[in-house]
Amino acid sequence: MKLISSYAIGLIFGIGISISGMANPAKVLNFFDFAGMWDPSLIFVMGGALATAFIGYRIVFGFSRPLLSDRFNLPARRDLDLPLIGGAAVFGVGWGIGGFCPGGALPALGTGNYEVFIFAAAMVAGILAAKRLQRWSGQRTSAQKHQERT
């Protein structure tokens, strides 16, 4: 049940991304090119997605629990820190260079366009490298704390 519903949800997302234009770097980059060939279409994508999610979440958060899980699994942090802001800024640089964001690129793989595979492979390499770096710095910090304690 979980697998079937996950597939269906992914499919709805993939169709949405495909028809919205988010899977097309030319359109995405033109949205950000205010000083050039500006294409405002993506305002409608963000607007439609955000309005739907905002209203839908209000309804869902009224449930005592999700249908196939015993609790809502939500990030609880509210503080702002350097990894969040720095990471978002780095993401922006990459998005501006290639024109793909992760949610746009993954469904776009299904078009068979080889360029999407180049982007996706590089993105996976970037995620792996960053996770390794996070683990390494995390181990170092906990080792330092351990030293301070002893």
Partner: peptide
């Protein structure tokens, strides 16, 4: 088309929250 795509993206997000409680 962009608005319709956006609404579908929103629907998928709401469904994953309703079914699994996830972002």
């Amino acid at each position: 088309m962009s608005l319709a795509g956006g609404v579908l993206i929103g629907v998928a997000s709401v469904l994953l929250m309703a079914v699994q409680g996830r972002i």
